[in-house]
Simulated assay, not measured.
Amino acid sequence: MKGRFMRVMVLFDLPVETAEERRAYTGFRKQLIRKGFVMMQESVYTKIVQNPPAARAVISHIRSVSPKEGLIQVLVITEKQYAGMELIIGHVQKEIIDTNEKLVIL
């Protein structure tokens, strides 16, 4: 069966007023990066997954590493929907890997 590539988008707004909150924010962000998420813009990270079960596994991991306070939202969309995103202002960052190939050689 052919894989249905999807994007898992994590959008978050976490408090950073105390040292403990800053540590929680940094730890959460590092966990996203370790799991293969790429920053799309500040506090918005995306990851390509192969199918809905893989997306559910990623969401489960996000739940397990989430800080106790703040706002974390997850949106799963198809790669076709993601490709239809319209850029209104700004520019696309060239250093971000944006491919659905399984092997990327840098």
Rank of each mutant, 00 (worst) to 15 (best):
M1W: 11
M1Y: 11
K2E: 08
G3H: 09
G3I: 04
G3D: 05
G3F: 09
M6Q: 10
M6D: 05
V8L: 02
M9T: 02
V10H: 01
V10S: 03
V10P: 05
D13T: 08
V16C: 11
E17R: 13
E17W: 01
E17K: 12
E17Y: 06
T18N: 05
R22G: 12
R22W: 09
R22N: 04
R23E: 14
R23D: 14
R23S: 12
A24C: 05
Y25L: 01
Y25Q: 01
T26G: 00
G27M: 04
G27R: 08
G27H: 12
R29F: 09
Q31F: 11
Q31G: 14
L32V: 10
I33C: 05
I33P: 04
K35P: 07
K35T: 13
K35L: 13
M40N: 15
Q41Y: 06
Q41C: 01
Q41V: 10
E42R: 15
E42Y: 10
S43D: 05
V44T: 13
Y45K: 01
Y45M: 01
Y45H: 09
I48T: 14
I48A: 04
V49G: 04
Q50I: 07
N51S: 15
N51F: 06
P52K: 08
P52V: 05
P53T: 05
P53C: 05
A54D: 12
A54Q: 06
R56T: 08
V58H: 03
I59F: 04
I59N: 05
S60N: 09
S60I: 03
H61S: 10
H61L: 10
I62A: 00
I62W: 01
I62V: 14
I62F: 00
R63V: 00
S64T: 07
V65H: 04
V65C: 09
S66E: 08
S66V: 01
P67R: 02
K68W: 03
G70W: 08
L71S: 09
I72D: 00
Q73V: 07
Q73F: 05
V76E: 02
V76H: 02
I77A: 09
I77S: 07
T78A: 01
T78K: 03
E79H: 10
K80F: 03
K80V: 06
Q81C: 08
Q81V: 02
Q81I: 12
Y82L: 05
A83E: 06
G84V: 03
G84T: 10
M85R: 15
M85V: 15
L87T: 14
L87R: 15
I89C: 08
I89Q: 08
G90Y: 12
G90P: 12
G90M: 07
G90Q: 15
H91K: 13
V92G: 08
V92Y: 13
Q93P: 13
Q93M: 13
K94H: 14
K94L: 13
E95P: 11
E95T: 13
I97Q: 12
D98S: 12
N100E: 13
E101N: 12
L103E: 14
L103D: 05
I105F: 12
I105C: 08
I105W: 07
